[in-house]
């Protein structure tokens, strides 16, 4: 079938702002949006720039706005979206070129919540054991691939880029509710800041944007409650 692609392009050397460009490609309904972008880049216009690495929904490189919604281009099939297909870079982060955005502000927020296990006690010769119930408390948030689909779908993040964003809170949640971790107090201290978890207005955009199906808004609410109860 013939697919019409409408891509928001931006060339930092020649453009003052983004502009739309149109492409027509032949595609099978079972092909992915990423395949369409490859067809454009490889056979029509080599200057089109976008990120992708694993191309199988694991690395989180190709989050973009497809027909108005944040998705991974490698995870959405042509038959799942309406034709013509409109593709834009994710919102709220500075555009570097075409569909590539500067991920540094996103990663800075991620680093702020200390996304690693903090425990100074020597476990001895054994592993740090956990019950199945303990794992279930944070299992959902371990699925995060840092694609930034949630954070860049958040209306608060669009206007207030100082907001730490859903992805950072999700990754704090992953350790705050981990029974092996002892750094919760420090993480919650960061998240109760004016730009932390309480900046969330429960718009639920993050939950619908997450390509891994993480209950992002619920995780943020869990963190808020934990901050209240263990402050």
């Amino acid at each position: 079938m013939d697919i019409e692609l409408k891509i928001l392009r931006y060339d930092p050397e020649n453009d003052r702002k983004g502009h739309w460009e149109f492409y027509k490609v032949e595609a099978d309904p079972d092909e992915r949006i990423l395949d369409l972008l490859h067809k454009v880049k490889w056979f029509e216009d080599g200057t089109l720039s976008f990120r992708r690495s694993c191309a199988h929904g694991v690395c989180g490189s190709d989050a973009m706005v497809i027909n108005g919604e944040n998705m991974l281009a490698c995870q959405v099939l042509v038959k799942e979206v309406s034709n013509p297909i409109k593709i834009e870079p994710v919102r709220g982060l500075p555009v570097v070129k075409d569909l590539i955005v500067d991920m540094e502000p996103f990663m800075d927020s991620y680093k702020k919540v200390m996304p690693y296990l903090i425990n100074d006690k020597d476990p001895g010769d054994r592993e740090r054991l956990q019950s199945q119930e303990d794992v279930e408390k944070f299992e959902d948030t371990t699925k995060c691939i840092l694609c930034a689909a949630c954070t860049t779908s958040c209306p608060v993040f669009w206007t207030a880029d100082s907001y730490i964003g859903p992805a950072a809170i999700v990754n704090a949640h992953r350790f705050v509710f981990d029974s092996r971790d002892e750094g919760s107090k420090q993480r919650l201290e960061i998240l109760k800041d004016v730009n932390g978890a309480f900046r969330c207005r429960t718009a639920f955009n993050c939950t619908s944007a997450c390509p891994k199906g993480i209950q992002v808004t619920k995780a943020i609410e869990d963190v808020k409650r934990e901050t209240l109860l263990n402050n």
């Binding site: 200390m114 690693y116 296990l117 903090i118 425990n119 100074d120 020597d122 420090q186 201290e189 960061i190 109760k192 800041d193 004016v194 932390g196 309480f198 900046r199 808020k224 901050t227 209240l228 402050n231």
Partner: peptide, 24 residues
């Protein structure tokens, strides 16, 4: 000896509770 302090940052200063109590 096992190292467990990889990438450790300084613990943040005690923050304000205003937003927390405002939310509650």
């Amino acid at each position: 000896e096992t190292r467990t302090d990889w990438g450790r940052r300084e613990p943040p200063l005690e923050g304000s509770n205003f937003e927390l109590y405002g939310w509650f």
